[in-house]
Each structure stands twice: as structure tokens, then as C-alpha cells.
Design a protein around this nucleic acid. Sequence first.
DNA 1: CATCATAATGCAACTCAGTTGCAATGTCAA
DNA 2: TTGACATTGCAACTGAGTTGCATTATGATG
Lengths: 136, 136
Amino acid sequence: MTALMNRSATAPKETKAHRAILRVLEEDHAPLAETELRSRLLQRGVRVNKTTIYRQLAGLKERGAVKEVDFGDGKKRFESNDGEHHHHLVCTKCKSVDEVQLPGELVRLEKAISKNKKFKILDHALEFFGLCVNCK
Amino acid sequence: MTALMNRSATAPKETKAHRAILRVLEEDHAPLAETELRSRLLQRGVRVNKTTIYRQLAGLKERGAVKEVDFGDGKKRFESNDGEHHHHLVCTKCKSVDEVQLPGELVRLEKAISKNKKFKILDHALEFFGLCVNCK
DNA sequence: CATCATAATGCAACTCAGTTGCAATGTCAA
DNA sequence: TTGACATTGCAACTGAGTTGCATTATGATG
Ligand SMILES: [Mn+2]
Ligand SMILES: [Mn+2]
Ligand SMILES: [Zn+2]
Ligand SMILES: [Zn+2]
């Protein structure tokens, strides 16, 4: 490619960090913060700089491979974006995270809101906090 | 009071900062971050240190006068806790915030979830993002 | 009103998550 | 094999939020 080329849809390069991060997220299947992801990677013998992690996650996110999740603890969390759209049950005691799907429910709600509030809903954030079966 | 006294339900002292902060939150009626609150206070001629603001908000929160809200932008936001429980329609373009109530809806959802997931829901976070009537 | 215990404040220094500039390294198409 | 350019690591930085401590203000008590 002789310069002056295709800038869009740049395919990600197959690097060690890229592969490892994606694999951890696919296997662990929970929203992980940078430090968590980093130590998971270390456990597998892959040492990655935090800057690289953030940059990879940003790329994975805009490519739709990963979703950002917020538990309100001031940390960015990311999870694999394979399965169906769902929400989380976060145990405030042991920090475990379970998933829950609300098929149709939110869609219906959003339609109603969009209509009578004249607000075009593009996204939502819904997470539940409480005690898991082991902690309550 | 001769020391060794009532430690609970400490009534807050009537200070300039306390009054001003509460008044701004009651009037502006939107979830404000520290910097926003701080400049609103300045506009009214009240200069308050950010440490004081955070400490006041913490006190107001545990006293139930204020609620913490998270828009996922890495900032703690607080709003007056007078009205009914509600959620927000946040315009991602102009940053305006509207409110929306979902009477019963969430309660019903939570009951169903609590039952078949054996998870005791104590709280939830639900905010909507999109385009307000002026921006869409 | 005067006293004074103690709550509230301001400031500086700190922590911690996340970002940026830049030089060094790695990837992959040609 | 080569070279353009994407990715990485590191150090320095930003910005939100917190903490220790000395100073000031509140309000209960007498
Ligand atoms: Mn999930
Ligand atoms: Mn509100
Ligand atoms: Zn638990
Ligand atoms: Zn708008």
C-alpha cells in the first residue's frame, strides 16, 4: 500500500497482547477492570503494560468485540460482547457477578419513554446491586 | 454535654457551605458533579473548598438528603433527594438531563429476578442515554 | 454575653485511574 | 527480505477524590 490508502476498518494486528486480552475476557466472562485483567494476564504468563491494556480495550470496544460496563466504583470495566444483551447482579459483599436477561422488558419501556418524552434513547445502563445467594 | 455522649444522629451544623450546597441542589435539581456544584456556588458568591464539598455531600448522602447518581463519566454526581424515585434521560449531545418515573415497573422486575435468581436486590442503577428533543 | 468543646473548613500533599508523547519494537503486505 | 506503519512500554502527566492537620466557626452551657 503506497500511502494515501484506506484508513477505515483497519484490521487489528495479531499481537500477543491482543490475543491474550481477548482470550481472558472470553473465558472469565465477567466485567473486568484494568488491574484485574492485568493480573489475569500475568497468571497466564503474559505481562502487558496498563497503557496497552487500555488501548486494546478501546480498540476492541469500537470494533464491538467488547462492551463497557459501569458498576459505579470509579473503574472502567469491560466484558466480552458475544452473548445476548443482559444486565448484572452485583453482590456488594463478595463482589460476585451474575447475569440476568430481561427479554423485551427494557425495549418496551424505552419505546414508551421515547414516545411520551420525545427523547431518542440510544443506550441504557442498568445494573442491580444486592446480596448473592451465598451472602444473604 | 460532659463527653461520653450521644454519638448517633448528629445534627449537622448550620454553616454557610451546608446551607448553600443544599440550596443549589434543591434549585438546580439535576445531578451535579463537584466542579459543577462548586461553580454554581461561586456564581452565588459562595466560595467553598472542594474537600468541603465532598465532605458535605457525604454527610448529606448518609443523612438521606441527597442521592448519588452515576452517568458513567467517572464523576460522582449528587442530586436532591426530595421527589419520587426516578431515572434520567441524559442527552449525550447537549448534556441536558430530564427525569422519568417508572412506577411499579422496576419493582415488578426486581421481584421476579429476586425470586428466580435467589439474589436479594437492594438497589439498582438505571439511566438512559440518547438525544433530547432539541438535539435529535 | 463569655466560655469552650468539638464540628466544619481550607490547604497541601497524597492516591489512584486513566491518558499522552515519544522512542523502540513488532507485524505483515509487497 | 524489506519497510511502512501499527503496537508497545515507559515516564510523565491529568483530574477526581481522599487524608492529615492546623485554623476557624458553631452552638450548647452557664
Ligand atoms: Mn456480563
Ligand atoms: Mn433527578
Ligand atoms: Zn456474595
Ligand atoms: Zn440535547
